[in-house]
């Protein structure tokens, strides 16, 4: 109760109320919409799960088991939730290549969003887990970029670098770059902790925190980020700066020195 009353005075409270109101309006509309459609929805839901099951049997079952119980080749998917499926399949990490390196990497996604949703629905039906976040959760409205930066430096920068350029982990594993990653996938990754990434559930990194982090990342690491000083040089700090200073800085100066010290061309002997 204390928590709630404290939050009521939060500057973002009005926004939350507004969003709630919008959600309620949507819900009311759905409730009052023609009944036939609702029934269709219901059957559509089970149809979706069936479709997902089929897709699962083709693309996933060989590693994760026919019922998602997991095998020696892949973990159990019971309870991982739709968010995990949406992230893993949506970023192309799943289905994984048969021979994989230290970790499964991002690649071209081979499923349509509708198919991913069907797979997600099927996996969710095996056991409840985090749902796919909505745009309201990961969108930029109401985000505090500066707070997001602080949270990013506390929770994320140790693996993903100051602005999410990625970094090394043990034995060839790595934290990937976060440049231009879909905000939805960022949110899902924090929520579900894919592969070796720890999860940051809402209980320890609140929904608002996640929204702030996503907004910060968009500000500092996307294709329209400003680098006032010029070339970003990979954004990985002094190593690339040092290489640049040696190759282009000292290199240019030595080229100039060669010109300064060279003898001037002589007139051709007649």
């Amino acid at each position: 109760m204390k928590k709630l009353s404290a939050r009521r005075r939060h500057p973002l409270a009005a926004l939350v109320v507004l969003l709630l109101a919008l959600a309620c309006t949507g819900g009311l509309y759905a409730a009052f919409a023609p009944a036939s459609k609702a029934q269709a929805d219901d059957s559509a839901q089970s149809l979706t799960i069936d479709e997902g099951k089929k897709l699962y049997a083709v693309g996933c079952a060989s590693c994760h088991g026919t019922g998602g119980q997991g095998t020696s080749d892949g973990p159990s998917l019971v309870g991982v939730g739709a968010a995990a499926v949406d992230f893993q399949v949506g970023t192309g990490r799943m289905p994984a290549a048969t021979s994989q390196g230290p970790q499964v990497v991002k690649k071209k996604n081979i499923y349509t969003q509708a198919e991913i949703d069907q797979l997600a629905a099927y996996i969710s039906s095996l056991g409840s887990g985090p749902a796919v976040p909505t745009k309201a959760e990961y969108g930029p409205e109401g985000a505090d970029i500066a707070k997001g930066g602080e949270l990013f430096r506390t929770n994320c920068a140790q693996c993903h670098n100051f602005t999410g350029k990625g970094g090394a982990l043990t034995k060839g594993k790595f934290a990937p770059t976060l440049e231009d990653v879909d905000p939805k996938h960022l949110y899902e990754a924090m929520q579900t902790g894919p592969q070796n990434m720890p999860s940051f559930p809402d209980t320890t990194l609140s929904e608002q925190n996640k929204k702030d982090i996503i907004a910060y990342l968009h500000a500092v690491n996307s294709s329209d980020t400003d680098n006032p000083g010029g070339l970003e040089l990979g954004g990985v700090g002094p190593v690339s700066e040092g290489l640049f200073a040696w190759i282009f800085g000292l290199g240019a100066l030595i080229a100039v020195a060669v010109w300064v010290a060279a003898r001037t061309a002589k007139a051709k002997k007649s």
Partner: peptide, 30 residues
């Protein structure tokens, strides 16, 4: 070089806090 290449963008790194860190923490080349 200073016109075209950015060096030590401290704004991207944020203020120092002894409980925060980033991967790729290196000193200048020397």
């Amino acid at each position: 070089i200073a016109a075209v290449a950015q060096i030590n963008p401290i704004w991207a790194m944020g203020p120092y806090r002894p409980d925060q860190v980033s991967t790729g923490a290196q000193p200048d080349w020397y």
